[in-house]
Nucleic acid binder design. Structure first.
Lengths: 213, 213
DNA sequence: ATTTTGCATTTTGAATTCAAAATACAAAAT
DNA sequence: ATTTTGTATTTTGAATTCAAAATGCAAAAT
């Protein structure tokens, strides 16, 4: 029997609220008020926040309150770097685990975008996330998958829109899939790391511009 | 002003208790009883457990209770793999950040063991942990450092004694330090990954023996 | 003898309560 | 006018309480 606890349902709600800016970075999370709004008492609410704290989405300043984390430029960079090596690991592992059905699945995520002259960016971004998630699943390292931090930063990055144009990443995704097909783990890892690190480079220059604005 | 909250002090206590087997893997953590033993109520106690859950040291089965996590062989392997790439990343980053003072620091951790015919394993293990921690600090990626999971598995691994004999790892440590001296990030990363992955290999064969016993 | 059922006890989940700390604000002093 | 001080209010930290669920056990039924 699956228990979906009160805590987890609130946890998800708050997480969503953070991602769609209903709760803005730096905003203080008033326990009394917010928990009331969600229709629960402070106990389960606090437990949910505790969980989010572990994912670096919320920050707890003792005796001063809980705040939506303001991700600094450096922290985003740091997290991207972690993502790069962890997803690289997943790609390497996936190369030895993957079967032809799963390869087809990954390909199908992107085939419709090939030769399309106007790509729906929203839909493409969704497929992109699926691709990365799916690959981590196939890699089979459960700990990587549980490091929610990886998904969080991925989401965070896509809030501001895609970092790189689909035409560019599409090629990269297929290159990774080909390495998996060839069961070349080394290559898959290398390509995945480059794929993510090149996004990071885009982020770096973008954020520099913003900073100096 | 630094606030050391009740929660964190309990958190550390429980963590210790887990590491020195006062609380054994699989053991149920009775909230009423244990919190009473620690002299606090269930609220801060539960908060501490929540934190430990995020670090994969405690498991929460809803409506059935909190348990000290039984790390499966596969989970330990998975965690080792994460450690390998994350510390590899740290080593690469450290290569560009490190200064001569820090290099000397790292060397000093191990110099006394060179040419020693009888190495104090307990002391060596401590230095080993310092080495890895210090390197992550120098690498400067704050997120890696916050992934407590890394330290946890390191500790876990050393509970059963050193996986590899000091004579072997001593060489590896110095090789890494030399790569850092040469500011060769690629090499430092490669060596660190090999260093950790070879420990993993030892663990794998050891744990196989135990399993078939 | 083994399994099933029902009751008592234990234990968790969640709300509430109480105290301590932080914040906001107004009044007084310089 | 600005700063300081004291007080009221808010908000968090932690304990307690209460209800719901799970567990253990004994008695009854097969």
């Amino acid at each position: 029997m699956e228990h979906i606890g009160l805590v987890d349902s609130i946890y998800l709600k708050i997480k969503q609220m953070i991602f769609n800016q209903e709760l803005k970075p730096g905003q203080k999370l008033l326990q009394e008020k917010l928990s009331a709004e969600l229709g629960v008492s402070r106990s389960p609410f606090l437990k949910a926040l505790q969980k989010l704290e572990g994912e670096f989405l919320v920050e707890n300043l003792p005796r001063r309150g809980m705040y939506v984390k303001v991700m600094s430029r450096q922290e985003i960079i740091d997290t991207f770097q972690c993502r790069s090596v962890l997803e690289g690991l997943s790609a390497r592992l996936a190369a030895s685990n993957i079967d032809s059905k799963e390869i087809a699945e990954l390909e199908n995520l992107f085939t419709e975008f090939v030769d399309q002259n106007k790509i729906d960016e929203k839909e493409y971004a969704k497929r992109d996330r699926s691709f990365h998630k799916r690959l981590m699943d196939i890699g089979g390292n459960k700990i990587v998958r549980k490091l929610e931090l990886i998904n969080n930063i991925h989401l965070q990055a896509f809030q501001v829109g895609l970092l790189k144009p689909p035409t560019e990443t599409l090629t990269e995704h297929f290159a990774i899939i080909n390495a998996l097909k060839a069961k070349d783990g080394q290559q898959a890892e290398r390509l995945m790391r480059e794929h993510i690190e090149s996004s990071l480079e885009v982020y770096k220059s973008q954020s520099l511009l913003i900073e100096s604005a």
